[in-house]
Simulated scan of single mutants.
Amino acid sequence: MSRNILIVDDEEDVRTIAKLGLEMDTGWNVLTAYSGREALNIAANSKLDVILLDMMMPDLDGPATLQQLKANPTTRLIPVIY
C-alpha cells in the first residue's frame, strides 16, 4: 500500500530534493506545498499519512500551520514532523 506524505517548505530546492529522495527510497506518493496556507488546503482535501513541515515560512509559519491543522477535525490526527 502506498503512503501519502505532504512536504511543506517555502524553498523549492528543499521540496524537490526531499520529494525525489522519498519517492526513490520509499515509493511513497509525495505531495508538496510552498506555504502553510497551501498545506492546509491540500491536507483538508487529501488522505495524508504524514506531513513534513518547515518551521520558518513567510505568511503562515510552521507553528501557526500546525495549530490550524490540529484545530481542524479533518486534519487533526495527521502526524506532523517539523
Rank of each mutant, 00 (worst) to 15 (best):
42 I>H: 01
55 M>A: 10
71 A>I: 01
53 L>T: 07
70 K>V: 06
53 L>K: 03
28 W>V: 10
64 A>L: 01
28 W>S: 07
9 D>W: 05
50 V>F: 12
21 G>H: 06
78 I>W: 04
10 D>Q: 08
29 N>W: 09
65 T>H: 00
77 L>Y: 06
18 A>V: 11
31 L>V: 14
71 A>P: 01
44 A>L: 15
26 T>Q: 13
66 L>R: 01
55 M>L: 15
19 K>M: 06
31 L>H: 11
64 A>F: 00
18 A>E: 06
10 D>H: 04
62 G>P: 03
76 R>I: 08
13 D>P: 05
10 D>T: 11
27 G>W: 15
27 G>A: 09
23 E>A: 15
3 R>M: 11
54 D>R: 02
41 N>R: 07
40 L>D: 03
53 L>D: 07
7 I>E: 14
67 Q>S: 13
78 I>A: 02
7 I>R: 07
21 G>K: 13
66 L>S: 00
77 L>K: 06
15 R>V: 11
81 I>R: 01
22 L>G: 13
51 I>H: 08
28 W>H: 15
58 P>M: 04
41 N>G: 08
8 V>Q: 06
53 L>I: 07
69 L>S: 05
42 I>W: 00
2 S>E: 15
23 E>H: 06
43 A>K: 02
78 I>P: 00
29 N>E: 15
21 G>M: 14
28 W>R: 07
17 I>C: 13
3 R>P: 04
18 A>S: 13
78 I>C: 03
63 P>Y: 04
37 R>D: 05
47 K>I: 09
5 I>C: 14
17 I>A: 15
14 V>P: 11
63 P>A: 07
43 A>C: 08
1 M>Y: 15
43 A>Y: 02
79 P>T: 14
34 Y>F: 08
67 Q>R: 10
63 P>E: 04
3 R>F: 09
20 L>E: 12
57 M>T: 05
17 I>H: 11
63 P>M: 07
48 L>I: 10
24 M>H: 12
18 A>F: 11
75 T>I: 09
48 L>R: 08
37 R>C: 04
77 L>S: 07
21 G>L: 12
58 P>N: 05
52 L>D: 10
13 D>V: 14
59 D>K: 00
69 L>A: 10
38 E>N: 10
42 I>K: 02
48 L>S: 09
34 Y>G: 06
65 T>D: 00
30 V>A: 07
4 N>I: 13
28 W>K: 11
26 T>P: 04
16 T>N: 13
51 I>W: 12
66 L>Y: 01
72 N>Y: 00
15 R>N: 06
34 Y>L: 05
48 L>H: 11
19 K>V: 06
23 E>Y: 08
48 L>N: 15
32 T>R: 08
23 E>F: 10
49 D>W: 02
65 T>F: 01
10 D>F: 02
73 P>Y: 04
22 L>M: 14
49 D>E: 10
26 T>E: 06
56 M>F: 05
55 M>S: 13
61 D>F: 01
2 S>Y: 11
65 T>N: 00
6 L>P: 03
81 I>Y: 01
34 Y>A: 04
76 R>N: 09
57 M>Q: 03
57 M>N: 04
46 S>H: 10
35 S>G: 06
71 A>Y: 01
52 L>W: 09
64 A>C: 02
29 N>S: 15
34 Y>T: 09
40 L>G: 05
7 I>K: 14
15 R>T: 08
63 P>R: 03
10 D>R: 03
46 S>Y: 11
